[in-house]
Amino acid sequence: MFDFIIVFASSLLAATIAPFYSEVVLAAVLTRQPDAAVLLWVLASTGNTLGSVVNWWLGKYLLHYQHRRWFPVKPDQLARAQHWFQRLGIWSLLFAWAPVGGDALTFIAGIMKVRLPLFVALVFIGKGLRYLIVIYFAEQLLL
């Protein structure tokens, strides 16, 4: 049971702004729980998507404080990010799994007020595919 909690928690943490890599944890647990690949995939994909929802929420609600000195994004950076997101569109959320820029993308989606159900669906698809690939390669190494 502890293995499953670790996979879920590490996946959730990895999707937030904290620097963490859940793929290593998933692969390690898969070596101990090889028959639980489907459950591990569900837990990792769900946890990582929920972590992205945290970023979405932060983007949506912290925008109210954008004119404060402590706000982490400068106005010109915010304008560039919004322009970039508008140009690429909501389909770019399929790439929210990317190690570089994926977390920022989910934060910007909150700023852009992307509807939560659509956000969750697109992010889950992208992250779910990534974890399928991780599980596939981890299982190949186990053979």
Rank of each mutant, 00 (worst) to 15 (best):
Y21E: 14
D35W: 01
P99G: 12
N48Q: 08
L88F: 07
I6Q: 12
Q77Y: 09
V100A: 07
G128P: 09
F2H: 00
G59C: 11
L129T: 08
I135M: 12
K127T: 04
K60T: 12
A104H: 12
D103Y: 06
Q82L: 14
T46Y: 12
G110Y: 04
V54D: 11
V7K: 04
I111T: 07
T49C: 13
F119S: 02
A138R: 10
A121S: 13
D76M: 08
W41L: 12
V29P: 04
G126M: 03
R32T: 13
P99R: 09
P75G: 11
A138K: 10
I6M: 14
L142P: 00
G89C: 09
L118P: 00
P99A: 10
S22R: 02
W97Y: 07
A138E: 11
L132V: 01
A36E: 06
H64A: 15
S10F: 15
V114N: 04
A14R: 06
I135L: 15
V54M: 12
V7S: 07
G47W: 03
E23S: 07
G51L: 09
L58W: 00
I133L: 15
I135H: 07
L40R: 05
K74M: 05
A98I: 13
V73G: 05
A9N: 03
H83Y: 13
S45R: 02
A98G: 05
W57L: 15
V25N: 06
L39S: 10
P75M: 14
V42W: 01
V24K: 06
Q33K: 15
V120E: 08
V114G: 08
Y131D: 03
F4L: 13
L78Y: 08
G59E: 02
F95P: 00
R115M: 08
M1D: 10
F137I: 14
I133H: 05
G101K: 10
D35R: 08
A18N: 01
F4E: 07
S10W: 10
L94R: 04
A36M: 06
G101N: 12
F137M: 15
F2V: 02
I108A: 05
F95W: 06
A37V: 05
T49W: 06
L50K: 06
E23L: 05
A36I: 02
F124H: 01
V38E: 03
W97M: 01
F85P: 07
G128D: 03
A96R: 01
A138M: 13
Y136V: 04
R80I: 00
L63C: 05
S22K: 01
P72C: 02
S92D: 07
D76Y: 14
L116S: 11
T16W: 06
W91V: 11
Q66N: 11
G126K: 01
F8Y: 02
A121H: 00
I90T: 11
Y61H: 14
R68P: 09
L94S: 03
H64K: 13
F85V: 02
K127A: 04
L132F: 05
D76Q: 13
P75D: 12
L105Y: 09
G128W: 03
Q77W: 08
D3I: 06
V38S: 00
L105R: 04
Q140Y: 10
